[in-house]
Write a protein that binds this DNA or RNA. Sequence first.
DNA 1: CGAGCTGTTGACATTGCTCAAATTTCGTGG
DNA 2: CCACGAAATTTGAGCAATGTCAACAGCTCG
Lengths: 240, 240
Amino acid sequence: MTEGQNQGRAAKLHHNCDQCDVRHKAMCAAVDVKDNDRLSAIVSHRDISPGQVIFEEGDPAEYAYNISSGEIRLYKLLPDGRRQITGFLGEGDFLGLVSDDAYAYGAEAMTQVELCSMRLINLERLLVDIPPVREKLLDMSRDELAAAQEQMLLLGRKTAREKLLSFLMQRYDRADSRPTEKNLHLPMTRTDIADYLGLTIETVSRTFTALREEGLIELIDTHTVQFPDLESVRDAADAF
Amino acid sequence: MTEGQNQGRAAKLHHNCDQCDVRHKAMCAAVDVKDNDRLSAIVSHRDISPGQVIFEEGDPAEYAYNISSGEIRLYKLLPDGRRQITGFLGEGDFLGLVSDDAYAYGAEAMTQVELCSMRLINLERLLVDIPPVREKLLDMSRDELAAAQEQMLLLGRKTAREKLLSFLMQRYDRADSRPTEKNLHLPMTRTDIADYLGLTIETVSRTFTALREEGLIELIDTHTVQFPDLESVRDAADAF
DNA sequence: CGAGCTGTTGACATTGCTCAAATTTCGTGG
DNA sequence: CCACGAAATTTGAGCAATGTCAACAGCTCG
């Protein structure tokens, strides 16, 4: 299975950025193709299995990462264990840039994950030498910030029902594959969804059931949702 | 009314950045002093009175602003009027950069405000010509992002009591003037606080009363708080 | 097959919200 | 400086949405 494959790959430390599948949607897109070797020289490949911690809040920040494949959750914890998931990241997303010298949040793999890692030191150098990279990172953090503000609106002012519907629409719209696809796959557990939406798992579960009974969604299985009528879901989700 | 005032002052379009009080803590600090005229050439001065809208969510984004003095609230609205305040800004803070071509949130003056405005077009040019400015803006948005994530934790996972205490500590720590000062001034209304913390004004009010009765805070007047024992407040606020 | 997850459902508790009214604060004009 | 009306804040009573605790069902893995 994948384990074997991954280990095979990890042996080859320096990935070749020329052949990277996600280059176009990652921060790397800002690097001119002719500087690819510059990029390849500083990145390493890393495989992570589901549930594994990539880094924890407060860890000294040494690496930044691009996600080559798989999905990750970012979260913050309170001393007593309450958790808030601040975001889910997927293919092409970037993580690890911090103002401080410590990570401001933790990161865990939700699925099998392939990371493209680089030392922050080397990244800093890249930012200086190749200005478009900084430009790209600024654009990306502005997007992240806009998403964070949208999430604050959700957390502070929406009902459980609105939260879940907004979440589903957010996932649906983000999913790159949008041909005739009416199915939405949710890789995360109910606990993850609850911690993302500021709810308990019971409320998430009950709300899923309620939406199903209303006919707004169909639950193909616990991790797959279908929308009989997309528009009515959007209307109910508000906020868009 | 205020219109008149604004036009009066606005007559003097180009502020002199050499003499700016907040230059050192604003984005402008990234501009070398010798390029000050470059900066002065693109900024204008604007006065805003309390309650006035600076821009609304969805407005086409034309200007970015530095705050010379005063305090501002940023917010997002739901169609039915529910409001989430996403942040309070003060002296030296920067607002208006957007990924889209429309503002992602609204901004209103809470007090009398002096703004230093610049066209986004001109700012873009500055970013290209003076790389440290982009660097500075990236740093600032990383800080903003970290603050946003902290706020998500607060909104999603803290109790009303913890929310209010965290808010008070956040304000206390941010207030630049921290000599022997045990007083904290809150320029915003209870409604603003409620909309920032994801609560109702009644709950905010009751929680203030409860904290006063516990002896954790003293209310000098509705907008001034004192902390008899700062440490016990910090303990109760968690999350730090 | 049994242990251990994950998810669902039920019964009940509680936090924070809603509606309403009393009180205080604040801005304005005299 | 004072009085008045409007706005902001506080307080009370009841309620609803969501959380807590507990039982149970379905699946996966050994």
